[in-house]
Design a protein around this nucleic acid. Sequence first.
DNA 1: GATCAACTCAAACGGACGTTTGTATGAACC
DNA 2: GGTTCATACAAACGTCCGTTTGAGTTGATC
Lengths: 223, 223
Amino acid sequence: MNPAAAASRRTASAALQTKDRILDAAEKLFSLYGFDAASVRMIAAAAKVNLAAINYHFQSKEALLLAVYERRVAPINARRVELLRSYLKGSVGRPLKSEPILEAFLRPAIEILDEAPHIPMLMVRTVYLQDRETFREIFDALFRPVSLEFFEALRLALPHLSGPQLFLRMQFFLGSFLQMMAARRAMEGLQGFPELPAPEEMMRQLIHYTAAGLRVRALESSK
Amino acid sequence: MNPAAAASRRTASAALQTKDRILDAAEKLFSLYGFDAASVRMIAAAAKVNLAAINYHFQSKEALLLAVYERRVAPINARRVELLRSYLKGSVGRPLKSEPILEAFLRPAIEILDEAPHIPMLMVRTVYLQDRETFREIFDALFRPVSLEFFEALRLALPHLSGPQLFLRMQFFLGSFLQMMAARRAMEGLQGFPELPAPEEMMRQLIHYTAAGLRVRALESSK
DNA sequence: GATCAACTCAAACGGACGTTTGTATGAACC
DNA sequence: GGTTCATACAAACGTCCGTTTGAGTTGATC
């Protein structure tokens, strides 16, 4: 609507180019340095646009971050749900095993690593650094539907776990996933650690490890 | 040395009171808002000290963060190693199982949750947000020795895993741990999620889950 | 009681920040 | 061909930042 109308007026790409360049630069710098440390001036310089262009196209720095999230996270989550549903369709009568469910969650995130290797840090920041109210709302809106759908799928795959028990183990899995995504960058420059495998291989290993952890019998409450 | 000399001169507690109040406030605000968003003025106000007192007692904001880390993280890691070694001594001839190793790592962190419930966020930020060179150095110095000792212990407990495979699974565990620590705060204010168990119970569940994941056979490389 | 170091405090420093303003530009429309 | 409107740009706005200054206060030491 708004961008389309704009595109029809001008060279049909000038403004879009600007907006996209801003989004690309913002994504990268927010990921690398965080929301506070990445200044609007840095972003403008990296995108090679005028400083005021950022507040013109997006209304504020916060809204820019929101736009970055929307553009990147929404497709990943859509892809996750799409994969999960196709796997569910594939396993006609019987409940799915946990492995394909985990893969449906992981693969879309793994796949963007090639085109945007800095994305993991953005995701980590999304999950952990929702300091401001705005950010918590973004997080909740983007991830809640996906979480619920995967929760229900895993419930069927793991009938030996109660709801709260499964939820806790999903938290453990989520942590492992984020750590896997962030580990490479967190370790860069540090000496003496083993090399990390390629993303696809790390994903296989994480699925294998997590499936074993999810499979193990429920631990009765203490006392 | 420096603080001791100071204490002997003045009321023997005035300056120390100030330094500790600054450290307490800084720890809390760094944890809650992050290094950038927590301003020196906020910290001074929270600690009820004069603004300049912070640059007087610590030389800079970065050095203050470093002091906060030192005070809190170093004891936790010392306790971890102490626990691990006592467990190793206890299991005379035979290699330790992985469960007590995990517990030795987790318990010291769990225990400070009561006196400083905001610490998990500080730890998460430590691990994930080492944007500045200074912070990476702190992290490396504080955690490397501990990591190595736990790595060696787990190596003996899990002889079916190669070094790189074990390292990767330790990353998964570390992620689960951080998520467990941060989950409560990350979820507060959000509706419709199951209640999280008490810290001690979460730790038990995490040990159970992780031991199963560590135990499972090694996955041969693909292709 | 003078000396001196440790400490507190109010005020100011220069700089970076996010945002706004006002003007210029240039294609699309009448 | 003049008007319109989305966009670009340079410059400035006020605010907050981390840090420094310099004068004051305190209490132990001799």
